[in-house]
């Protein structure tokens, strides 16, 4: 048998384009039955399963986005409140500093005022003490001078003389700058 014989044998083969209603009818029937079963029993189940999963995934993504949004908002609020607290703290510190400064200034002023008053009072006291001392000196000096003069003169000096001598002595003292 040669290749030519094979080709010749092919001539007797059935026509591939031959119409066969049995085969066509079987194909129509089988596909119609298969399609009917698949239409009611398979595709609704598969599409529902895929849709459910899709919805689930989309729902999870949305929930995650919502959670992220809420977290972002909470973080923003937290940062905002933190900034407010920080600002409030700064303000409180500034106010405290100002108050401390004010109190310090007041205390300083009061101290200075009190010091000035005390110094004035001390000066006045000193002046009055000085005056009293001078008056005492004057008194003692006049008595002492009268006593000295009495001894020297051997006579009693009456008060009028004594007053004249004292005034004279005081005048000399004043002139001497005592």
């Amino acid at each position: 048998m040669s290749f030519a014989i094979l080709l010749a044998a092919a001539d007797g083969a059935p026509d591939p384009m031959k119409l066969n209603l049995w085969v066509a009818g079987t194909a129509l029937l089988v596909f119609a039955i298969a399609f009917s079963i698949l239409y009611f029993k398979v595709w609704p189940v598969i599409t529902k399963g895929l849709d459910d999963r899709n919805d689930k995934i989309l729902g999870e993504i949305k929930a995650a986005e919502d959670a992220r949004s809420q977290a972002k908002q909470a973080l923003s609020e937290y940062e905002q409140s933190l900034a407010q607290a920080r600002e409030q703290a700064q303000q409180t510190i500034a106010e405290a500093k100002a108050e401390a400064q004010r109190l310090g200034d007041e205390m300083k002023a009061a101290n200075e005022r009190e010091l000035a008053e005390r110094m004035a009072r001390a000066k006045a006291d000193i002046e009055s003490a000085r005056r009293a001392a001078v008056a005492d000196i004057h008194a003692n000096a006049s008595e002492l001078a009268a006593a000295v003069a009495s001894r020297i003169l051997k006579r009693e000096i009456n008060p009028a003389d004594q007053a004249g001598l004292v005034s004279e002595a005081l005048g000399e003292l004043d002139e001497a700058g005592v």
């Binding site: 049995w22 085969v23 079987t26 194909a27 089988v30 596909f31 039955i33 298969a34 079963i37 698949l38 029993k41 398979v42 595709w43 189940v45 598969i46 529902k48 399963g49 895929l50 459910d52 999963r53």
Partner: peptide
């Protein structure tokens, strides 16, 4: 032959896809 294969293919298709659908089902 083709008619037998059509029937066989239809049965395999329906059974295979019903099995797959039962696994894909929620």
């Amino acid at each position: 032959l083709h008619e037998v294969m059509l029937v066989l293919g239809g049965i395999l298709l329906v059974l295979g896809l019903m099995f797959a659908a039962s696994r894909i089902r929620t």
